[in-house]
């Protein structure tokens, strides 16, 4: 009996979580008449194919917009930002947690607070900076700006994670014959892999969904990222190309969902280890 209730609840959550994906899928392949007729005909059933499916919306997305280009742009920005963030935040978090003593904790909080400054306040100084560096309307602007959001948060994340990794293992390595530098380079990375993965996933998510800075600093269509290009190209005035919008969402989210599922255990471990035990 208890089991049945448990499965019923799990099923409920699954439907709740999966329905948006189903909706994206159906909308992507529906004919326009099938999509819009419900507005005037209440007997129309919206969640099934009433007319045969079509590839028109997918064709529009891939043939008449720069979607493949945006995917490439997004990938370039994501990879660059992930590399920069890991390269800066992991050593920063490590040194603040392990080497800076009591001041490390306070500095870590200070760094975290900078993450809380709303982007709208930073437009003006950032646009001056971007203009000064000649990066306006280029992916370089995004690669420069995004780490200002990801590094503070990820530094703090790595600090929290390290608190749950006993220092004794690294001290043991120092006794066993390693110098402090050798411990940092050869022993510590292996211990904080889950923390690094968490940083990667968080940065990935943040960059994929960022819209406001992209809108501010990118103006040419061929330089846009997915999150900017899709709404700009497929929402024309008050005409929403729902089918193509949903197609874009579908083709972006499914590979991501697969990748996340491969890492989900470590991802959760990274978050809870830092958050709960810290």
């Amino acid at each position: 009996m208890k089991r049945v209730a448990l499965y019923a609840a799990a099923l409920g959550f699954m439907v709740f979580a999966g329905f948006p994906f189903y909706w994206m899928l159906v909308t992507t392949f529906k004919q326009n008449r099938d999509l819009y007729v419900g507005a005037s005909d209440v007997s129309h059933i919206p969640w099934i194919f009433n007319d045969p499916p079509t590839l028109d919306h997918v064709r529009l997305l891939f043939g008449e917009t720069e979607f493949p280009r945006w995917v490439l742009n997004t990938l370039i920005v994501v990879v660059a930002v992930v590399v920069i963030t890991v390269a800066v935040a992991v050593p920063a978090g490590y040194s603040l947690a392990r080497l800076a003593g009591r001041w490390g904790e306070r500095m870590g909080m200070g760094i975290f607070f900078t993450y809380l400054i709303p982007p709208t306040l930073l437009f003006v100084p950032f646009s001056r900076l971007v203009a000064l560096l000649g990066l306006h309307n280029s992916l370089g602007a995004l690669i420069l700006i995004y780490p200002t959001m990801t590094i503070p948060f990820c530094t703090w994340l790595v600090m929290g994670f390290l608190r749950s990794v006993p220092w004794e293992i690294e001290e043991q390595a120092m006794i066993d014959g390693y110098s402090r530098l050798a411990v940092i380079l050869r022993v510590a990375p292996r211990l904080i892999v889950p923390g690094i993965l968490t940083v990667v996933v968080f940065t990935f998510t943040l960059v994929m969904q960022e819209f406001v800075y992209a809108l501010t600093f990118i103006s040419s269509v061929e330089k846009m990222t997915i999150s900017l290009g899709v709404p700009i190209a497929l929402v024309r005035g008050d005409v929403y190309h729902w089918g193509s919008l949903m197609a874009a969402a579908l083709f972006t989210s499914i590979p991501l969902a697969i990748v996340y599922n491969l890492f989900i255990d470590r991802f959760i471990q990274g978050f809870t280890m830092g958050a709960v035990k810290g």
């Binding site: 004794e168 293992i169 001290e171 043991q172 390595a173 211990l191």
Partner: peptide
């Protein structure tokens, strides 16, 4: 060490 600090 008390925790043995084995390399996991």
């Amino acid at each position: 060490f008390q925790s043995y600090a084995l390399y996991p």
